[in-house]
Amino acid sequence: MREVRISLVGFGIVGHGVLEVVRRKRELLKDMGLDLKVVSVTDINGTLFDEKGIDPQRLHGARTLEGIANLGIIGKEAIQEIDSDLVVEVTPTNIVHGQPGLGHIEEALSQGKHVVTSNKGPLVVAFNHLKELAQDNGVMLKYEATVGGTMPLISLIEKNLVGNEILSIRGIFNGTCNYILTRMMEEKYTYSYALTEAQELGIAEADPAYDVDGIDTAGKVVILANSIFGMDVKYDDVNVTGIRDITPEALNLAWERGYLIKLIGDVPTLTVKPMLVPRRSPLAVGGTLNVASIETDLSGTITVTGLGAGSIETASAIVSDVVSIYTSRQIDA
């Protein structure tokens, strides 16, 4: 049995999901020869540490670690002090400077710890730097959950499509925009009405700019460009148009001619913009779904679709990354 000591940094929606998935899948993971032990959880209030592995019951119903933390250390200091093999970094994302996640990931990699993250910010700001840092320290940096949530995209390309040249990836990478456009088309809602509905359902944030202006999608385009296409690009290199100006009339005109309007991110052209998608295209998925079409030289075009966000869904992608680090290592040995 291989014991894996995990430090969880960030205790928001995704952090909760990670604890829950590790708990639910404990037996299955043990059957695979892995004993995943979350030895610490850190948020801005402090760190909860238990060498034997934290019992999720202790955190049941808690939204933060206030009053629960048993160590006063946070952030980089916590990563440095606590003896762990792997850091799961799930703090809030910032696409401009990448902090605090960037510092956390740098610290973990420098300490020789593997890192699994769902945090786009650090990767958008410093992908190649972090990748090199991982390599120099002989550890792995995995980030499947940053693009398309639970939808397997990066691992699909790196593992199953290995040997293929990837010519392009285009798709819907933001569930909030897809939900708003779907409702505008189906119910003839105005943009602002559909946005309000999405906000009431918790699908859109109170400040929706990050989603509806295409910023989130552009971040994912940057990550795909750097990781899959070996480019060295930043957020500013992406040409971004959001969905605020889309009208129900435009959606209706498009529908009559056999099209839907979707916010499409495209690599390597580095564009994010609303586009006409044929109704019968595999990219024409509705609701909050994400979808990606991968154009390859050998395998033709492969399309994957799935839930782009959600606590358990994102955590599932994170746990898959953790497992893949240790299973691929076994093959190496």
């Binding site: 285009r170 148009t241 100006d245 889309i246 435009a250 498009a254 099209y259 309007i261 499409i264 495209d266 052209t269 913009k273 609303p274 586009m275 006409l276 998608v277 044929p278 295209s281 990219l283």
Partner: peptide, 10 residues
Amino acid sequence: LLVIEPIEAE
């Protein structure tokens, strides 16, 4: 004006 092109055009 916002110009919306079809995906095939790319």
